[in-house]
Design a protein around this nucleic acid. Structure first.
Length: 422
RNA sequence: GGAGAGAUGGCCGAGUAGGUUGAAGGCGAUCGCCUGCUAAGCGAUUAUAGGGGCUAAACCUCUAUCGAGGGUUCGAAUCCCUCUCUCUCCGCCA
Protein backbone atom coordinates (compact mmCIF):
# COMPACT_ATOMS: atom_id res chain seq x y z
CA UNK A 1 0.00 0.00 0.00
CA UNK A 2 1.27 3.42 -0.89
CA UNK A 3 0.92 6.45 1.32
CA UNK A 4 -2.30 8.29 0.55
CA UNK A 5 -0.65 11.68 0.80
CA UNK A 6 2.15 10.57 -1.49
CA UNK A 7 -0.35 9.63 -4.17
CA UNK A 8 -2.29 12.86 -3.70
CA UNK A 9 0.84 14.96 -4.04
CA UNK A 10 2.59 12.91 -6.75
CA UNK A 11 -0.09 11.47 -9.01
CA UNK A 12 2.19 11.68 -12.06
CA UNK A 13 4.95 9.72 -10.37
CA UNK A 14 2.52 7.04 -9.25
CA UNK A 15 0.93 6.78 -12.69
CA UNK A 16 4.39 6.43 -14.20
CA UNK A 17 5.32 3.67 -11.74
CA UNK A 18 2.14 1.78 -12.52
CA UNK A 19 2.75 2.13 -16.24
CA UNK A 20 6.21 0.62 -15.84
CA UNK A 21 4.68 -2.32 -14.00
CA UNK A 22 2.16 -2.75 -16.77
CA UNK A 23 -0.84 -1.73 -14.66
CA UNK A 24 -3.49 0.37 -16.32
CA UNK A 25 -5.21 1.73 -13.26
CA UNK A 26 -6.80 5.14 -13.59
CA UNK A 27 -5.91 7.52 -10.78
CA UNK A 28 -8.50 10.15 -11.59
CA UNK A 29 -11.32 8.31 -9.84
CA UNK A 30 -9.07 7.80 -6.85
CA UNK A 31 -8.27 11.49 -6.57
CA UNK A 32 -11.92 12.46 -6.96
CA UNK A 33 -12.99 10.18 -4.15
CA UNK A 34 -10.19 11.49 -1.99
CA UNK A 35 -11.39 15.02 -2.66
CA UNK A 36 -15.02 14.22 -1.78
CA UNK A 37 -13.89 12.40 1.31
CA UNK A 38 -11.96 15.37 2.59
CA UNK A 39 -14.87 17.74 2.00
CA UNK A 40 -17.19 15.56 4.01
CA UNK A 41 -14.62 15.25 6.76
CA UNK A 42 -14.50 19.01 7.10
CA UNK A 43 -18.26 19.30 7.25
CA UNK A 44 -18.87 16.45 9.66
CA UNK A 45 -16.04 17.38 11.99
CA UNK A 46 -17.39 20.89 12.32
CA UNK A 47 -20.74 19.45 13.35
CA UNK A 48 -19.09 17.11 15.83
CA UNK A 49 -17.19 19.97 17.35
CA UNK A 50 -20.47 21.81 17.85
CA UNK A 51 -22.11 18.75 19.31
CA UNK A 52 -19.29 18.31 21.79
CA UNK A 53 -19.60 21.91 22.90
CA UNK A 54 -23.35 21.69 23.39
CA UNK A 55 -23.08 18.39 25.25
CA UNK A 56 -20.83 20.05 27.75
CA UNK A 57 -23.30 22.87 28.04
CA UNK A 58 -26.06 20.37 28.77
CA UNK A 59 -23.95 18.82 31.49
CA UNK A 60 -23.40 22.23 33.06
CA UNK A 61 -27.08 23.11 32.97
CA UNK A 62 -28.14 19.78 34.43
CA UNK A 63 -25.67 20.14 37.23
CA UNK A 64 -27.28 23.46 38.09
CA UNK A 65 -30.69 21.81 37.68
CA UNK A 66 -31.61 24.17 34.87
CA UNK A 67 -33.69 23.38 31.84
CA UNK A 68 -31.88 22.14 28.74
CA UNK A 69 -34.70 20.78 26.62
CA UNK A 70 -34.44 23.38 23.88
CA UNK A 71 -30.79 22.80 23.03
CA UNK A 72 -31.25 19.05 23.36
CA UNK A 73 -34.02 19.36 20.83
CA UNK A 74 -31.72 21.30 18.55
CA UNK A 75 -28.91 18.79 18.85
CA UNK A 76 -31.19 15.96 17.88
CA UNK A 77 -31.18 17.40 14.35
CA UNK A 78 -27.43 17.85 14.34
CA UNK A 79 -26.87 14.29 15.46
CA UNK A 80 -29.01 12.99 12.68
CA UNK A 81 -27.05 15.01 10.16
CA UNK A 82 -23.79 13.68 11.59
CA UNK A 83 -25.04 10.13 11.25
CA UNK A 84 -25.94 10.66 7.61
CA UNK A 85 -22.62 12.25 6.79
CA UNK A 86 -20.70 9.56 8.64
CA UNK A 87 -22.47 6.96 6.55
CA UNK A 88 -21.54 8.74 3.36
CA UNK A 89 -17.99 9.18 4.57
CA UNK A 90 -17.49 5.52 5.36
CA UNK A 91 -18.74 4.68 1.89
CA UNK A 92 -16.03 6.84 0.32
CA UNK A 93 -13.38 5.61 2.72
CA UNK A 94 -14.25 2.05 1.83
CA UNK A 95 -13.92 2.79 -1.87
CA UNK A 96 -10.67 4.64 -1.33
CA UNK A 97 -9.22 1.85 0.75
CA UNK A 98 -10.19 -0.66 -1.90
CA UNK A 99 -8.42 1.33 -4.60
CA UNK A 100 -5.43 1.93 -2.35
CA UNK A 101 -5.07 -1.81 -1.77
CA UNK A 102 -5.07 -2.47 -5.50
CA UNK A 103 -2.38 0.04 -6.45
CA UNK A 104 0.96 -1.77 -6.87
CA UNK A 105 4.21 -0.83 -5.24
CA UNK A 106 6.49 1.53 -7.13
CA UNK A 107 9.62 0.04 -8.71
CA UNK A 108 12.96 1.17 -7.30
CA UNK A 109 15.05 3.44 -9.50
CA UNK A 110 17.70 0.73 -9.94
CA UNK A 111 15.19 -1.61 -11.59
CA UNK A 112 15.44 -1.86 -15.38
CA UNK A 113 12.32 -0.83 -17.26
CA UNK A 114 10.86 -3.66 -19.31
CA UNK A 115 7.56 -5.22 -20.28
CA UNK A 116 7.95 -8.88 -19.27
CA UNK A 117 10.37 -11.66 -18.30
CA UNK A 118 12.23 -11.41 -21.61
CA UNK A 119 13.67 -8.11 -20.43
CA UNK A 120 15.02 -9.31 -17.10
CA UNK A 121 18.75 -8.80 -16.68
CA UNK A 122 21.20 -11.54 -15.84
CA UNK A 123 23.43 -10.35 -13.00
CA UNK A 124 25.87 -13.25 -12.52
CA UNK A 125 26.39 -16.97 -13.03
CA UNK A 126 27.98 -19.52 -10.74
CA UNK A 127 29.72 -22.57 -12.21
CA UNK A 128 29.07 -23.99 -15.65
CA UNK A 129 26.50 -26.69 -16.24
CA UNK A 130 27.91 -30.18 -16.49
CA UNK A 131 28.25 -31.93 -19.84
CA UNK A 132 26.72 -35.39 -19.80
CA UNK A 133 28.49 -38.11 -21.77
CA UNK A 134 25.30 -40.18 -21.62
CA UNK A 135 21.66 -39.50 -22.16
CA UNK A 136 20.62 -37.44 -19.15
CA UNK A 137 17.17 -38.18 -17.78
CA UNK A 138 14.54 -35.81 -16.44
CA UNK A 139 14.05 -35.84 -12.67
CA UNK A 140 10.60 -37.41 -12.90
CA UNK A 141 12.10 -40.39 -14.70
CA UNK A 142 15.09 -40.61 -12.37
CA UNK A 143 12.83 -40.44 -9.31
CA UNK A 144 10.29 -42.91 -10.63
CA UNK A 145 12.97 -45.39 -11.74
CA UNK A 146 14.63 -45.22 -8.32
CA UNK A 147 11.19 -45.56 -6.71
CA UNK A 148 11.74 -42.45 -4.60
CA UNK A 149 9.00 -40.43 -6.36
CA UNK A 150 5.49 -41.62 -7.15
CA UNK A 151 3.31 -39.40 -9.29
CA UNK A 152 0.72 -42.00 -10.25
CA UNK A 153 -0.42 -42.81 -6.77
CA UNK A 154 -0.28 -39.12 -5.86
CA UNK A 155 -2.82 -38.40 -8.55
CA UNK A 156 -4.95 -41.28 -7.26
CA UNK A 157 -5.07 -40.06 -3.68
CA UNK A 158 -5.13 -36.33 -4.47
CA UNK A 159 -5.02 -35.39 -8.15
CA UNK A 160 -2.79 -33.73 -10.70
CA UNK A 161 0.15 -31.66 -9.50
CA UNK A 162 0.88 -33.69 -6.39
CA UNK A 163 3.82 -35.97 -5.65
CA UNK A 164 4.68 -38.65 -3.16
CA UNK A 165 8.26 -38.84 -1.88
CA UNK A 166 9.22 -42.34 -0.81
CA UNK A 167 12.05 -43.93 1.12
CA UNK A 168 15.33 -42.15 0.45
CA UNK A 169 13.36 -39.60 -1.57
CA UNK A 170 11.39 -38.60 1.50
CA UNK A 171 14.62 -38.54 3.46
CA UNK A 172 16.30 -36.38 0.82
CA UNK A 173 13.49 -33.82 0.92
CA UNK A 174 13.78 -33.70 4.70
CA UNK A 175 17.57 -33.48 4.48
CA UNK A 176 17.39 -30.50 2.14
CA UNK A 177 15.01 -28.68 4.46
CA UNK A 178 17.09 -29.38 7.55
CA UNK A 179 20.32 -28.45 5.80
CA UNK A 180 18.89 -25.11 4.73
CA UNK A 181 17.47 -24.35 8.17
CA UNK A 182 20.78 -25.23 9.81
CA UNK A 183 22.73 -23.04 7.41
CA UNK A 184 20.52 -19.99 7.90
CA UNK A 185 20.09 -20.31 11.65
CA UNK A 186 23.64 -21.28 12.56
CA UNK A 187 25.64 -19.28 10.05
CA UNK A 188 23.47 -16.49 8.70
CA UNK A 189 21.84 -15.30 11.92
CA UNK A 190 18.19 -16.09 11.21
CA UNK A 191 15.71 -16.98 13.94
CA UNK A 192 13.60 -20.02 13.19
CA UNK A 193 9.82 -19.84 13.11
CA UNK A 194 7.38 -22.66 12.56
CA UNK A 195 4.08 -20.94 11.76
CA UNK A 196 0.50 -22.02 10.99
CA UNK A 197 -0.27 -23.14 7.44
CA UNK A 198 -3.75 -21.63 7.61
CA UNK A 199 -4.09 -17.88 7.96
CA UNK A 200 -6.96 -15.41 7.92
CA UNK A 201 -7.78 -12.86 5.24
CA UNK A 202 -6.25 -9.98 7.20
CA UNK A 203 -2.88 -11.70 6.92
CA UNK A 204 -3.36 -12.30 3.21
CA UNK A 205 -4.16 -8.61 2.79
CA UNK A 206 -1.16 -7.60 4.86
CA UNK A 207 1.34 -9.16 2.50
CA UNK A 208 -0.58 -8.28 -0.65
CA UNK A 209 -2.11 -11.58 -1.83
CA UNK A 210 -5.55 -10.13 -1.22
CA UNK A 211 -7.64 -8.51 -2.51
CA UNK A 212 -6.22 -9.03 -6.00
CA UNK A 213 -4.91 -12.59 -6.08
CA UNK A 214 -7.48 -14.69 -4.27
CA UNK A 215 -7.70 -17.06 -7.25
CA UNK A 216 -4.11 -18.22 -6.75
CA UNK A 217 -4.81 -19.64 -3.32
CA UNK A 218 -6.80 -22.43 -1.68
CA UNK A 219 -9.52 -21.23 0.63
CA UNK A 220 -11.19 -23.41 3.23
CA UNK A 221 -14.91 -23.45 2.53
CA UNK A 222 -17.11 -21.81 5.12
CA UNK A 223 -14.23 -20.23 7.00
CA UNK A 224 -11.93 -17.23 6.72
CA UNK A 225 -8.89 -19.53 6.43
CA UNK A 226 -6.53 -19.72 3.49
CA UNK A 227 -3.75 -22.23 2.95
CA UNK A 228 -0.53 -20.26 2.82
CA UNK A 229 1.07 -19.93 -0.62
CA UNK A 230 4.39 -19.16 1.09
CA UNK A 231 5.73 -18.73 4.62
CA UNK A 232 6.15 -15.07 3.75
CA UNK A 233 2.49 -14.62 4.71
CA UNK A 234 2.49 -15.90 8.31
CA UNK A 235 6.02 -14.71 9.06
CA UNK A 236 5.66 -11.17 7.72
CA UNK A 237 2.32 -10.92 9.53
CA UNK A 238 3.94 -12.14 12.73
CA UNK A 239 4.42 -8.53 13.77
CA UNK A 240 1.30 -7.10 12.18
CA UNK A 241 -0.12 -4.14 14.14
CA UNK A 242 2.97 -3.99 16.30
CA UNK A 243 5.44 -1.28 17.15
CA UNK A 244 9.03 -2.50 17.31
CA UNK A 245 11.93 -0.89 19.08
CA UNK A 246 14.69 0.35 16.85
CA UNK A 247 17.15 -2.02 18.53
CA UNK A 248 15.09 -4.96 17.28
CA UNK A 249 16.05 -4.05 13.72
CA UNK A 250 17.15 -5.76 11.66
CA UNK A 251 15.23 -8.93 12.56
CA UNK A 252 15.87 -12.04 10.47
CA UNK A 253 13.39 -14.92 10.42
CA UNK A 254 13.62 -18.24 8.66
CA UNK A 255 10.71 -20.64 8.36
CA UNK A 256 10.13 -23.98 6.77
CA UNK A 257 6.56 -24.60 5.65
CA UNK A 258 4.66 -26.47 3.05
CA UNK A 259 3.21 -24.06 0.49
CA UNK A 260 -0.05 -24.37 -1.39
CA UNK A 261 -0.89 -22.83 -4.73
CA UNK A 262 -3.91 -23.41 -6.90
CA UNK A 263 -1.87 -22.67 -10.05
CA UNK A 264 -5.01 -21.31 -11.67
CA UNK A 265 -4.26 -20.38 -15.25
CA UNK A 266 -1.18 -22.57 -15.51
CA UNK A 267 -2.88 -25.62 -16.99
CA UNK A 268 -0.46 -26.30 -19.80
CA UNK A 269 2.74 -25.42 -17.96
CA UNK A 270 5.25 -27.79 -16.38
CA UNK A 271 2.77 -30.61 -16.21
CA UNK A 272 5.41 -33.23 -15.50
CA UNK A 273 7.60 -33.52 -12.48
CA UNK A 274 8.09 -31.46 -9.36
CA UNK A 275 8.39 -28.01 -10.85
CA UNK A 276 4.80 -26.85 -10.50
CA UNK A 277 2.87 -28.52 -7.69
CA UNK A 278 -0.18 -27.63 -5.63
CA UNK A 279 1.86 -28.41 -2.53
CA UNK A 280 5.58 -27.97 -2.09
CA UNK A 281 8.13 -27.41 0.64
CA UNK A 282 10.04 -24.19 1.00
CA UNK A 283 12.43 -22.57 3.44
CA UNK A 284 11.69 -18.87 3.50
CA UNK A 285 13.82 -15.96 4.69
CA UNK A 286 12.04 -12.85 6.00
CA UNK A 287 13.58 -9.63 7.22
CA UNK A 288 12.30 -6.54 9.02
CA UNK A 289 14.79 -3.73 8.60
CA UNK A 290 15.26 0.02 8.85
CA UNK A 291 14.43 1.86 5.61
CA UNK A 292 17.94 3.16 5.05
CA UNK A 293 19.44 -0.34 5.05
CA UNK A 294 16.89 -2.27 3.04
CA UNK A 295 18.80 -2.38 -0.24
CA UNK A 296 21.98 -3.59 1.45
CA UNK A 297 19.86 -6.15 3.24
CA UNK A 298 18.44 -7.32 -0.07
CA UNK A 299 21.92 -8.03 -1.42
CA UNK A 300 22.76 -9.97 1.75
CA UNK A 301 19.53 -11.92 1.51
CA UNK A 302 20.31 -12.95 -2.05
CA UNK A 303 23.81 -13.99 -0.99
CA UNK A 304 22.33 -16.11 1.83
CA UNK A 305 20.06 -17.90 -0.63
CA UNK A 306 22.90 -18.38 -3.11
CA UNK A 307 25.01 -19.99 -0.40
CA UNK A 308 22.62 -22.95 -0.36
CA UNK A 309 23.30 -23.68 -4.02
CA UNK A 310 27.02 -23.10 -3.67
CA UNK A 311 27.25 -25.67 -0.90
CA UNK A 312 25.10 -28.09 -2.85
CA UNK A 313 27.32 -27.34 -5.85
CA UNK A 314 24.49 -26.82 -8.28
CA UNK A 315 25.08 -24.30 -11.12
CA UNK A 316 22.83 -21.27 -11.02
CA UNK A 317 22.46 -17.71 -12.16
CA UNK A 318 20.98 -14.57 -10.62
CA UNK A 319 18.62 -12.35 -12.58
CA UNK A 320 17.24 -8.92 -11.82
CA UNK A 321 13.56 -8.57 -12.61
CA UNK A 322 12.55 -5.74 -14.89
CA UNK A 323 9.61 -3.48 -13.98
CA UNK A 324 7.11 -5.56 -15.96
CA UNK A 325 8.03 -8.80 -14.16
CA UNK A 326 8.34 -7.40 -10.65
CA UNK A 327 4.99 -8.43 -9.36
CA UNK A 328 2.50 -6.42 -7.38
CA UNK A 329 4.19 -5.80 -4.05
CA UNK A 330 7.92 -5.74 -4.79
CA UNK A 331 10.03 -2.64 -5.38
CA UNK A 332 13.00 -4.72 -6.48
CA UNK A 333 13.41 -8.44 -7.02
CA UNK A 334 16.14 -10.91 -7.85
CA UNK A 335 15.51 -14.47 -8.94
CA UNK A 336 17.88 -17.38 -8.44
CA UNK A 337 17.66 -19.90 -11.22
CA UNK A 338 19.20 -23.36 -11.16
CA UNK A 339 20.40 -25.25 -14.18
CA UNK A 340 17.85 -27.89 -15.07
CA UNK A 341 19.22 -30.35 -17.67
CA UNK A 342 15.79 -31.65 -18.67
CA UNK A 343 14.63 -28.13 -19.47
CA UNK A 344 17.98 -27.22 -21.04
CA UNK A 345 17.79 -23.88 -19.25
CA UNK A 346 17.84 -22.20 -15.89
CA UNK A 347 14.68 -22.56 -13.78
CA UNK A 348 13.56 -20.27 -10.96
CA UNK A 349 14.26 -21.67 -7.52
CA UNK A 350 14.19 -18.52 -5.40
CA UNK A 351 12.74 -15.07 -5.52
CA UNK A 352 14.22 -12.37 -3.28
CA UNK A 353 12.36 -9.09 -2.91
CA UNK A 354 12.49 -5.79 -1.16
CA UNK A 355 8.98 -4.52 -0.51
CA UNK A 356 10.19 -1.33 1.16
CA UNK A 357 7.28 -0.12 3.32
CA UNK A 358 4.55 -1.47 1.02
CA UNK A 359 3.73 -4.50 3.16
CA UNK A 360 4.55 -2.74 6.41
CA UNK A 361 1.96 -0.08 5.63
CA UNK A 362 -0.70 -2.69 4.81
CA UNK A 363 0.20 -4.77 7.84
CA UNK A 364 0.80 -1.72 10.04
CA UNK A 365 4.28 -2.69 11.22
CA UNK A 366 6.21 0.28 12.58
CA UNK A 367 9.15 1.03 14.78
CA UNK A 368 9.95 3.70 17.30
CA UNK A 369 13.32 5.36 16.66
CA UNK A 370 15.49 5.37 19.78
CA UNK A 371 15.70 8.89 21.13
CA UNK A 372 12.15 9.69 20.07
CA UNK A 373 10.74 10.91 16.82
CA UNK A 374 7.79 9.80 14.79
CA UNK A 375 6.92 6.16 14.26
CA UNK A 376 8.12 4.82 10.95
CA UNK A 377 7.13 1.84 8.90
CA UNK A 378 9.78 -0.85 8.73
CA UNK A 379 10.92 -2.22 5.42
CA UNK A 380 10.18 -5.90 4.79
CA UNK A 381 12.07 -8.31 2.58
CA UNK A 382 11.79 -11.95 1.83
CA UNK A 383 13.27 -14.63 -0.33
CA UNK A 384 13.17 -18.35 -0.78
CA UNK A 385 16.13 -20.01 0.75
CA UNK A 386 15.19 -22.23 -1.17
CA UNK A 387 12.22 -23.99 -2.70
CA UNK A 388 12.92 -27.57 -1.63
CA UNK A 389 10.92 -29.36 -4.32
CA UNK A 390 12.67 -27.62 -7.17
CA UNK A 391 15.96 -28.09 -5.38
CA UNK A 392 15.22 -31.80 -5.15
CA UNK A 393 14.54 -31.90 -8.90
CA UNK A 394 17.70 -29.97 -9.77
CA UNK A 395 19.75 -32.19 -7.50
CA UNK A 396 18.51 -35.41 -9.12
CA UNK A 397 19.17 -34.10 -12.60
CA UNK A 398 22.57 -32.54 -11.96
CA UNK A 399 23.86 -35.40 -9.80
CA UNK A 400 22.57 -38.32 -11.86
CA UNK A 401 24.91 -41.06 -12.98
CA UNK A 402 24.87 -43.18 -16.12
CA UNK A 403 23.60 -46.23 -14.21
CA UNK A 404 20.54 -44.30 -13.04
CA UNK A 405 21.82 -43.69 -9.53
CA UNK A 406 22.14 -40.28 -7.93
CA UNK A 407 25.17 -39.11 -5.99
CA UNK A 408 24.43 -37.24 -2.76
CA UNK A 409 26.19 -33.88 -2.45
CA UNK A 410 28.80 -33.91 0.28
CA UNK A 411 27.01 -31.45 2.57
CA UNK A 412 23.92 -33.65 2.62
CA UNK A 413 25.64 -36.94 3.46
CA UNK A 414 25.49 -36.33 7.24
CA UNK A 415 21.74 -35.79 6.90
CA UNK A 416 21.22 -38.74 4.52
CA UNK A 417 23.48 -41.36 6.03
CA UNK A 418 24.25 -42.59 2.51
CA UNK A 419 26.34 -41.11 -0.30
CA UNK A 420 24.17 -42.23 -3.18
CA UNK A 421 20.69 -43.36 -4.06
CA UNK A 422 20.41 -46.44 -6.24
C1' G B 1 -19.36 -28.67 22.00
C1' G B 2 -21.37 -26.79 27.36
C1' A B 3 -20.66 -23.09 31.64
C1' G B 4 -18.26 -18.79 33.38
C1' A B 5 -14.48 -14.50 33.43
C1' G B 6 -12.03 -10.95 30.70
C1' A B 7 -10.06 -7.43 26.43
C1' U B 8 -8.13 0.19 28.45
C1' G B 9 -1.93 4.07 26.13
C1' G B 10 5.17 1.18 24.41
C1' C B 11 4.11 -2.17 28.89
C1' C B 12 1.51 -2.95 33.73
C1' G B 13 -2.86 -1.15 35.76
C1' A B 14 -7.22 2.36 37.82
C1' G B 15 -11.76 3.98 36.16
C1' U B 16 -18.64 1.26 34.98
C1' A B 17 -26.10 4.13 39.33
C1' G B 18 -23.57 7.73 31.22
C1' G B 19 -21.50 14.33 31.34
C1' U B 20 -13.71 18.36 30.52
C1' U B 21 -11.20 10.74 31.30
C1' G B 22 -6.96 10.96 25.65
C1' A B 23 -7.97 8.66 29.95
C1' A B 24 -5.32 8.41 37.49
C1' G B 25 -1.07 5.68 39.26
C1' G B 26 3.23 2.83 38.14
C1' C B 27 7.04 0.96 34.75
C1' G B 28 9.84 2.04 30.61
C1' A B 29 11.91 5.88 27.44
C1' U B 30 13.92 10.98 26.39
C1' C B 31 15.98 15.69 28.14
C1' G B 32 17.98 18.50 32.25
C1' C B 33 19.96 18.67 37.35
C1' C B 34 22.68 16.21 41.08
C1' U B 35 26.87 12.78 41.61
C1' G B 36 34.64 10.62 41.91
C1' C B 37 32.40 6.11 38.77
C1' U B 38 28.17 2.98 39.22
C1' A B 39 23.65 2.73 41.81
C1' A B 40 20.08 5.79 43.74
C1' G B 41 17.65 10.65 43.72
C1' C B 42 15.13 15.31 41.83
C1' G B 43 12.51 18.06 37.83
C1' A B 44 10.33 18.14 33.00
C1' U B 45 8.60 15.66 28.71
C1' U B 46 6.48 11.20 26.70
C1' A B 47 -0.09 7.97 22.19
C1' U B 48 -1.72 7.18 17.23
C1' A B 49 -4.40 8.33 12.90
C1' G B 50 -7.08 11.70 9.93
C1' G B 51 -8.74 16.85 8.56
C1' G B 52 -7.66 22.25 8.38
C1' G B 53 -4.03 26.43 8.81
C1' C B 54 1.44 27.13 7.04
C1' U B 55 5.44 27.11 0.58
C1' A B 56 7.22 23.20 3.87
C1' A B 57 9.14 21.55 8.56
C1' A B 58 8.51 23.22 13.40
C1' C B 59 4.12 24.65 15.32
C1' C B 60 -1.24 25.77 16.01
C1' U B 61 -6.23 23.90 15.78
C1' C B 62 -10.20 20.39 15.16
C1' U B 63 -12.02 15.25 14.87
C1' A B 64 -11.59 10.18 15.98
C1' U B 65 -9.65 6.12 18.82
C1' C B 66 -10.53 2.30 25.91
C1' G B 67 -10.85 -5.75 21.21
C1' A B 68 -14.22 -5.12 16.24
C1' G B 69 -18.98 -3.71 14.32
C1' G B 70 -23.92 -1.97 15.17
C1' G B 71 -27.78 0.25 18.63
C1' U B 72 -29.88 3.60 22.65
C1' U B 73 -28.83 8.96 24.01
C1' C B 74 -28.15 15.93 23.37
C1' G B 75 -23.76 13.08 25.21
C1' A B 76 -21.02 6.12 25.86
C1' A B 77 -14.51 3.32 28.12
C1' U B 78 -19.14 3.12 31.05
C1' C B 79 -26.03 0.75 29.00
C1' C B 80 -27.99 -2.97 24.93
C1' C B 81 -27.02 -6.46 20.62
C1' U B 82 -23.66 -9.26 17.30
C1' C B 83 -18.81 -10.94 16.36
C1' U B 84 -13.47 -11.96 17.36
C1' C B 85 -9.76 -13.25 20.65
C1' U B 86 -7.75 -14.64 25.65
C1' C B 87 -8.29 -17.24 30.37
C1' U B 88 -10.79 -20.98 33.88
C1' C B 89 -13.88 -25.39 34.52
C1' C B 90 -16.49 -29.65 32.08
C1' G B 91 -16.85 -32.83 27.73
C1' C B 92 -14.18 -34.66 23.45
C1' C B 93 -9.61 -35.50 21.16
C1' A B 94 -3.98 -36.03 18.05
Amino acid sequence: MLDLKFIRENPELVADGMRKKGEGIELREFLEIDEKRRMIIQEVEELKRKRNEVSEEVARLKKKREDATSIIEEMREVSKKIKDLDGELSKYEGELKGLLLSIPNMPHESVPVGKDDTENVEVRRWETPRNFDFEAKAHWDIGTDLDILDFERASKISGARFAIYKGLGARLERALITFMLDLHTKEHGYFEIYPPYLVNSDSMTGTGQLPKFGEDMFKCTGTDYYLIPTAEVPVTNLRRDEILNEDELPTYYVAYTACFRSEAGAYGKDTRGLIRQHQFDKVELVKYVKPETSYDELEKLVANAEEVLKRLKIPYRVTLMCTGDLGFAAAKKYDLEVWMPSYGRYVEISSCSNFEDFQARRANIRYRPTGGGKLQHVHTLNGSGLAAGRCFAALLENYQNEDGSVTIPEVLIPYMGVDRIG
